[in-house]
């Protein structure tokens, strides 16, 4: 009965390299884990850290950002900006208790379908080993809590956390 946990990975793939790498992996019939849900962005530099946080909060178990190798960016330096942001984001995510493997940045050029496929396989196994993130339930205990959220039942937490 033990069904294997299938992680959900949201993938932000850049239009010029990594999305094409994913396309190539498809046309070349490379078999790889079906766990990544690709979203095409024009450049990996378009990935606002809010996208990553939102994906994690809304149920993703991991986020992959994929772009062109440094030096090969269609917009010259977009991916360098991505890298600066990513390194800072990783430091902050560690403080928020999000394991290193859950958010990854990879470089895959349009011809590197195999590299993209291997990265997806590797990341899927790493996250499978960590288990589900399930932020809403496990961390927020079901309460939404953003903006003008649904009103949380009074003293709901009081019952949950009365220390004994």
């Amino acid at each position: 009965m033990n069904k294997q946990f299938e992680p959900v990975i949201v993938g932000f793939l850049c239009n010029w390299c990594s999305y094409r790498a994913a396309d190539l992996a498809g046309t070349a019939r490379i078999h790889y884990a079906p766990n990544m849900r690709p979203i095409r962005v024009m450049c990996s530099g378009r990935v606002d850290p809010q996208f990553v946080l939102k994906a994690l909060r809304e149920g993703a178990d991991g986020v992959m950002i994929a772009g062109c190798h440094p030096g090969e960016c269609h917009y010259v330096e977009g991916n360098i900006k991505t890298l600066r942001r990513f390194i800072l984001l990783k430091k902050m995510l560690a403080q928020l208790g999000i394991e290193d493997e859950r958010v990854q940045l990879i470089w895959a050029s349009a011809s590197e379908g195999i590299i993209l496929a291997e990265a997806v396989n590797r990341m899927t196994e790493q996250i499978r080993a960590l288990g589900p993130l399930n932020w809403q339930e496990k961390v927020l205990g079901g309460g939404n809590g953003h903006g003008h959220p649904a009103v949380i039942e009074p003293a709901q937490e009081a019952e949950e956390v009365l220390y004994d």
């Binding site: 560690a94 403080q95 928020l96 208790g97 999000i98 960590l130 496990k138």
Partner: peptide, 21 residues
């Protein structure tokens, strides 16, 4: 922090102590 997307640190995984590595 209370209004942020994640709202709090995850205590189930990671260090969950707000300490930067």
């Amino acid at each position: 922090m209370a209004h942020s997307l994640l709202r709090r640190a995850n205590l189930n995984g990671g260090n969950g102590k707000g300490e930067a590595k």
